[in-house]
């Protein structure tokens, strides 16, 4: 088990290398010149050239890539072209809101979607089941920003129940922190809930057909224990897998959600960096997201062993 974890962590290195190469190349190929943006409208070609040289943008592709990777290996993600702050500092400033949003969304989604899927499978074909399925389809097809604006309009503006937008750090108290995250989490979580509820329902339907469920019934086990212990534990592996894959959805959705609810997080940072061609920041953030995603997947693989004793590494 320990050896497996070490192997898996080491295996993230080549994955990250490929991600790094990809991110770097994409920005290299992409149109738009950061030097021209910095120099402004009035600059002469000579000014632009001078700025470009000072940023090292005139060097060959491989040299630039090599230098960047070397810096990263030493723990230096580079310096923002615009703010002149280290990228790591900028990320550190923005990570709390994004992390908070993701965690609240994850907890909300799992605690809503799994029971939804279980009940839908149990009541297969009934009105409850159809309502869940309808929600799943709807949740999948309505974009995050539509849900976000609707929620903000009704819950914040019309009924004045929750703040419209913004973020309060956790250090200022649990409720002020949570209050600001509820609407964004619902907006961001809708797709995620739909996804998890669907897979939970489908897997549960299959598991409920199994012989050991019949055995549990013959033992006199109650309906709730059959659903949430005997069946759900067997259905856990596909559900956990989807929860893991869905983290990618959350990362993508966080960018939009943060814009809608004016949360000063990594998503906003990324969008701003892209608009300004601030490529050290873009590279740093994308690399971080990729790393998180790879780690989440490792965690999911390890979680399997918790639910299914037949899986051993």
């Amino acid at each position: 088990m320990f050896a497996y974890v070490v192997r898996r962590v080491l295996a993230t290195i080549p994955v990250m290398a490929v991600v790094a190469l990809f991110v770097f190349s994409l920005l290299y190929i992409a149109p738009g010149d950061p030097a021209a943006v910095i120099a402004g409208d009035q600059a002469t070609p000579a000014d632009v050239e001078r700025i470009r040289a000072s940023l090292g943008l005139d060097r060959p592709y491989l040299v630039r890539f090599g230098a960047w990777v070397w810096d990263i290996l030493r723990g230096d993600l580079g310096t923002s072209i615009f703010t002149n702050l280290p990228v790591s500092t900028m990320i550190a400033q923005r990570i709390e809101p994004t992390l908070s949003l993701m965690i609240v969304t994850l907890l909300l989604a799992v605690s809503v979607a799994v029971p939804m899927g279980v009940v839908a499978a149990w009541k297969q074909g009934t009105l409850v089941d159809r309502a869940v399925m309808a929600f799943a389809v709807l949740g999948f097809s309505v974009p995050v920003f539509v849900v976000g604006y609707l929620l903000a309009y009704f819950f914040a503006l019309e009924w004045d129940l929750l703040p419209v937008q913004g973020y309060t750090p956790f250090s200022r108290g649990f409720w002020p922190w949570l209050e600001n995250l509820i609407l964004p989490a619902i907006a961001l979580g809708t797709v995620y809930i739909a996804l998890i509820a669907r897979i939970t329902r489908a897997t549960m339907l299959e598991v409920l057909q199994q012989d050991y469920i019949r055995t549990a019934k013959a033992k006199g086990v109650g309906q709730r224990a059959i659903l949430f212990l005997h069946a759900l534990k067997n259905a856990a592996v596909p559900i956990v897998t989807v929860i893991g894959i869905g983290i990618a959805l959350l990362i993508g959705g966080a960018v939009v959600t943060e814009s809608v609810f004016a949360i000063p997080g990594l998503g906003r940072l990324t969008v701003d960096a892209i608009l300004r061609r601030d490529y050290p920041v873009i590279q740093g953030v994308v690399l971080l997201f990729s790393f998180v995603y790879v780690l989440v997947n490792l965690a999911i693989d390890l979680l399997y062993t918790l639910f299914d004793p037949r899986i051993r590494y």
Partner: peptide, 13 residues
């Protein structure tokens, strides 16, 4: 007790 001992026990308990 049932016919299929291979599948009648819950594999995760």
């Amino acid at each position: 007790i049932f016919q299929e001992p291979m599948t009648s026990l819950n594999p995760v308990l």
